[in-house]
């Protein structure tokens, strides 16, 4: 192997994954809780970036799908619907995908750019208001006291009521979803999406159906966001209409830019970094907004490639000498992909 630097990202990923998996064993409850949320927000941000970086669409109301999934699982758990938890997550996935397909089918045909941004924002606001009118889901107060599930597997039962058991459940589902998205962006669909994000006009010219591809991406993204919401409901144990507030829609945006939108894992890195920042500034009203707004602004103005972008250029610098000395250097430079 000529270039050891290619191991940098996989190694970092494996270390991060092991650390996250072991967290409930040595971290206290509040840190575990925040890490669980961070995993969910990480996948939520990855689903947003599927639209932003890989398809060239900015959704400002992505939280609407998250809310849909969260409320479905919340109702199912709270009112004891006769649906097992894995099936609940699948239904949340289907609901989110169905809603995204229905909205996207109309919206992507009629609107783009700024209009699409405002449209998605308005739809999320409507979701928030409609939930506030429905007695069954607790109006503006939301649904509280959501129990964590016990899954019956036939031969054995999986008890997820304890905090650490549900934490590992989140970990497994989130890793599966993230790998699924990772596979998607590397498949031929992912490459087709990339091409329309880069230059929609040329993609049309070579015979791609832009509308269909965008709709496909919008549907998958909405479905993943809904499953994230479904996972979060038993973890936080309360759902409120504010899940669909535009501040929550801004969360994946923020995580994505913080981590770096150009690399697939950037949004996930951003989600964990944001949780860290938020955890350390949580005490004073207003400070968290200043810190978050200030960081976001600084990133956009000074380092638009985010944390992973900065690390990537660092990686290149460190391994540059090694690479230059290698007889493979010329070959790699020619065939290099980011």
């Amino acid at each position: 192997m000529a270039d050891r630097s290619v191991y940098f990202w996989p190694a970092a990923g494996v270390i991060a994954l092991i650390a996250t998996a072991l967290a409930p064993l040595f971290a206290n409850d509040s840190v575990t809780f925040i890490l669980g949320l961070a995993m969910i927000e990480a996948v939520f941000a990855l689903s947003w970036n599927l639209l932003f970086n890989y398809t060239g669409i900015a959704s400002f109301g992505h939280a609407a799908f998250f809310t849909l999934g969260a409320y479905f699982v919340a109702c199912a758990q709270r009112y004891g619907w006769d649906v097992t938890f894995p099936l609940q997550l699948l239904v949340a996935f289907a609901l989110g995908g169905g809603a995204a397909f229905a909205i996207g089918a109309v919206a992507l045909k009629r609107a783009s750019g700024i209009h699409l941004a405002i449209l998605t924002l308005a739809i999320a606001e409507v979701v928030r208001m409609v939930i506030g009118y429905i007695d069954y889901v607790g109006r503006d107060d939301g649904l509280g006291g959501i129990p964590r599930p016990v899954v019956n597997l036939g031969l054995a039962t999986l008890d997820l009521r304890s905090s650490s058991a549900y934490y590992w459940c989140i970990l497994v589902v989130c890793v599966a979803l993230a790998l699924g998205l990772w596979w998607l962006v590397r498949s031929r669909y992912g490459r087709a999406l990339r091409s329309i994000a880069e230059d929609a006009e040329r993609a049309t010219f070579v015979g791609m159906d832009i509308y269909k591809l965008r709709l496909f991406s919008f549907t998958i993204s909405g479905a993943v966001a809904a499953i994230c919401g479904g996972l979060s409901a038993p973890w936080v144990q309360i759902v409120t209409p504010d899940l669909s507030h535009w501040l929550h829609s801004a969360q994946p945006m923020l995580n994505t830019l913080l981590g770096g939108s150009a690399m697939f894992w950037g949004p996930a890195v951003g989600a964990f970094a944001y949780s860290l920042i938020n955890y350390s500034t949580r005490t004073l009203d207003g400070v968290s907004e200043i810190v978050v707004g200030g960081i976001l602004l600084t990133i956009i103005l000074i380092a638009p490639t985010g944390i992973t972008g900065a690390l990537e250029s660092l990686r290149r610098k460190i391994f540059q000498k090694w690479r230059a000395a290698s007889p493979w250097a010329q070959v790699r430079v020619k065939g290099e992909q980011i």
Binding site: F52, A58, G113, I114, A117, A250, M253, L257, L284, D285, G286, V287, S288, E289, I290, V291, V292, G293, G294, L296, L297, I300, L301, P304
Partner: peptide, 28 residues
């Protein structure tokens, strides 16, 4: 002025960041 030539998504998100920043200042 700095973002005049960049993608409009970044300007949108920058003004959003400004929203958070000023709201935080007002709260303090």
């Amino acid at each position: 002025r700095r973002l005049r030539d960049s993608d409009y998504h970044y300007t949108l998100i920058a003004t959003f960041a400004l929203l958070l920043l000023i709201t935080g200042l007002v709260k303090i």
